[in-house]
Each structure stands twice: as C-alpha cells, then as structure tokens.
Design a protein around this nucleic acid. Sequence first.
DNA 1: CTCCGACCTGCG
DNA 2: GCAGGTCGGA
Length: 431
Amino acid sequence: MTSLLPVFRSLPLHLVQLSLSAVLKCGQSFRWTILPGASQDDTEYWLCLRDRVVCLRQSSNTLFYRAVYPDPQPAPTQKALRDAETLVWLNDYFQLDIDLAALYDEWTTRDPIFAKIKSRFQGIRILRQDPWENLVSFICSSKNNIVRITKMVQALCTHYSPPLVSFPGEDTAYHPFPPPSALAEPGVSATLRSLGFGYRADFIQRTAKMLVDAHPQTVLVHNHAEASEKWLMGLRDRSTREAREELLKFVGVGRKVADCVLLMSLDKKEVVPVDTHVHQIAVKHYGLKSASASGGKKVAMTPKLYEDVNSKLFNVWGEYAGWAHSVGGMQPESESFFQFLTSFPFQVLFTADLKSFASYGLPTPSGSSTPSIPSRAVDPIVLLPTPPMTPIPPQLKRPHDDTAIDMLKKFDDDFGVTSLAERVKRRRRSA
DNA sequence: CTCCGACCTGCG
DNA sequence: GCAGGTCGGA
C-alpha cells in the first residue's frame, strides 16, 4: 500500500507566505482531509481533484507535494508531466505569485489594528478555488458552522461523484466534487434533505439546474469541466459588479454568499464578505457607526448596512481588502476565530507541540519566543513515513491541562474581551 | 425599498 | 432558543 504513494517533491516556501494548518481549516475550502501525524509537520493535507489526489505537507521553509492517481504505474514521461501539472496547480490554487509578506506590510502601514494581531496569524491567504465547488459550499454555509458544512460537502461528494482513488483496508475513498449535471436532477433535492442538508437542499438542486439549463452540455468528456462550470470560471474576466449580478440570480445566493465566491474563486481580491461577526469587528475596531445606539445588540443586516461595512473595510485595507479580511476576521469576536481555536489540529498543538507555536503563526506561550524548527525539515522528502491513518486519540481531542485556557485568557486580556476562555471551558465541560 | 417571519438541523 | 443567510410576502 505504502509503496503506491510517490515520493514528495519540495517547493521552497516560508510559513510567512502560507500556513496550511491555518488556511485549509479556516472556512474557505471544506474538502481537505487532514491526516494528523506525530507532530504538526508530519500532518498531511489531501484534496481530491478531477484526476488526482493532491497531498501536501509543510515545514517552516518548505512545502512538500505529491499526487496520487487512479493509475499508479504510469510511464516515466507521463509521471514527469503529472508532477509538472501538480506544481502548476499548486501555484494557481495558493496564488503563490502574490507576496503575502508584502501585503502584511502594507496592511500594517494602513491599519494599526492589523499590526497588533498579525503576528499571531501568519501565512493566511485567500485560496483560488473552483467556482462551482465554492458556490455550492457557500450555499451550504447559511446559518451553519464549519464542522457541519464540511460534513455536508463530503456527503455531496460521496453520493454524487464516483470514487477516484481508494486504498485497500481503508474505509474512505476519495471523491472529486460532483459536476453541476450530477446535482441538477429533480430527485437530488429529496436525497440531500435526507442527508441532512435542510432547506439548502432545494437551493443546491435548483442552482445546479439553472446553471445546466442556461449552459447545456454539448459533448460530455470524462474528467473535464462542463460548459456551465466554464461559464462560471469566465466570471473571473468580468467586472466585480457584473460577476456579482450574475451570482445573485441563483437561489440560495444572497449578497454574503456571492461576495464569498467573488473573493475566493473569482479573483475579486478587494471584496470583503460581511457577516454578523465582521460587522461587529467593524463597529468595535474600525469605528463604524453603530446603527442601534450604544446597546449594539442585534442589528439586522440590511443591504445599506452591508454596503457601509463593506466600503468601510475596503477603505481601511485597500486593493486587497478581501485578503486582509481573511486575517483580520480572525479576531476574538469572530466565530471563525473560535472555531479555528477549537478545531482539531489546533487542539493537538495546545497539548503536544507548544514550542513550535510561532512557526505556525500561532500565539507563542509567554516566555518562549524561539520557534523550534525540527532539523529534519532540511531533507525530509523521501524519508518521511506515510502518515498514520489512525483516528485521533481521544485524549488529544481536548486539551488535558489548562495551558489552552491560559493562552485564551491572554487573548482575552490583549483584546479586552472575556469570552474565549469561558466559551472553551463551557464547551469542555459539556464534552 | 425596508421589514419580518419562516426555513432544516444541531447544539447549548 | 438561536445560529457566519436567503427568500418571499406585507
């Protein structure tokens, strides 16, 4: 089994430019499989594309990549081509031509609030995702949380797209994201409801049908993008306003979802999607005038308010405001911040790997400021073992000491909030 | 054009 | 009873 996995190739890339542990679980893409290793840089991230499963691993200064195919024994020339393709995909998906360090510098200059939090959240960048997958994923996101969205997207793939690769002795096969035509059939809606999609089931089926009807398939080529997917991709070349207008025609797609898609798959880097938490952050940290006097409790997100928040943050952060929001949105008020803190890889860090916090762009425990980088990061490509597919040990699922709570208190102090430590305690008690 | 309730499911 | 939203009718 292990022998079927190709060796890793390496790409020089500093953690400042990309932090997989932060980016792949922060609510942009919901389809990455996390295979935890003994330590953080043994962790692997797997994503099933149309024709291959991409596997990534990261050390402080290197990104490691390989891909697994349905046909594991290609001709040598084919093999080289595949590696080249994977590298091209990586560059595109992570937008590695964009210098994130330079952007952080610019946001630091423009925004003292950003300057204060940036060291904790290094390497957070916007992915350049597939528009169709992105659209469906965010239709799922309304009134929802990351964990459940992840389950829904996974269910979508296993039920509506044939497995691309599977491994003997493992129960999980890897499925690509299903094409629009697979979700456009009338029966899909009922099936998705039975899978727990709730009211989003109808949105997804109807959106898929609208797309397929408007851009019918003339020729079906296996593993290739359908006409409607290409049309969606073409929105990258339209203006932000035009592209948004098109997206808003779909059911289940309001301003927030449309803006997420514009930012995360249609190259509209200046767009800041506004949710209730981003709104709160804009009021608290960026002096947005609160609509409801001093109370500031629950204000309905009207189109006008949306525009106010949106343009306010654009003015603060500038041309790459949407990218800045993915970092600035990681403030203690934000739900994504909380989910990020309590999500799996983070919790293992809390308990198992405190010394290397800084290397993951995460808060360093007071006292230690030196990120300890494992020395074998120099040449781990062939030597690294295949990551274990064992489930997460139960004792690692929750912090077993109070270190995590202490760190959260430090966050609370720094930001003048009192919620995080309490919320984690509550959550732990109920677990 | 703004306001308001309903909508699935899951978790506190 | 409410959640990172959207729809449709008043």
